[in-house]
Simulated assay, not measured.
Amino acid sequence: MQFLPKMPRALKVALPLALAAAAAPMVAQMPEVPGKADKTRVVAGTYTADASHSLVAWTVNHFGFNDYFGLFGDVTGTLSIDPANPAASKVSVKIPVSKVITASPGLTAHLLKPGAEGKPADFFGATPADATFVSTSVVPGADGTSATINGDLTLNGVTKPVAVAATFAGAGTNPFSKAATLGFHGTAMIKRSDFNVKMGLPFVADEVKLNITVAFEKK
Rank of each mutant, 00 (worst) to 15 (best):
A121R: 14
T40F: 11
A215R: 14
M7Y: 08
T46N: 13
V43C: 09
H62E: 02
A22Q: 06
T173D: 11
V43P: 14
T40A: 10
A147L: 08
K178D: 03
I212F: 08
L107A: 07
T145R: 10
N211V: 04
V139A: 02
V27R: 07
P175R: 03
S193G: 09
G125K: 14
P8H: 05
V214Q: 03
A23N: 04
M189S: 12
S52M: 14
A215W: 15
G35N: 10
Q29T: 06
F124L: 07
V158H: 05
A51C: 13
A131L: 14
V100I: 12
H110R: 13
N61G: 01
N66S: 12
S98R: 15
S89V: 06
A14I: 11
K218Q: 05
G106D: 13
T213E: 10
V97C: 07
P34M: 03
G106H: 06
H53C: 03
V162I: 07
F195T: 00
N156L: 06
F195D: 01
P83W: 05
Y47K: 08
L11E: 03
D38L: 14
A131G: 09
D50N: 13
A171R: 12
L182F: 01
M1A: 03
A215E: 13
V197L: 07
V214A: 04
I101R: 13
F168Q: 02
S137D: 05
N150T: 01
T148K: 10
D143Y: 08
L112E: 07
T40E: 09
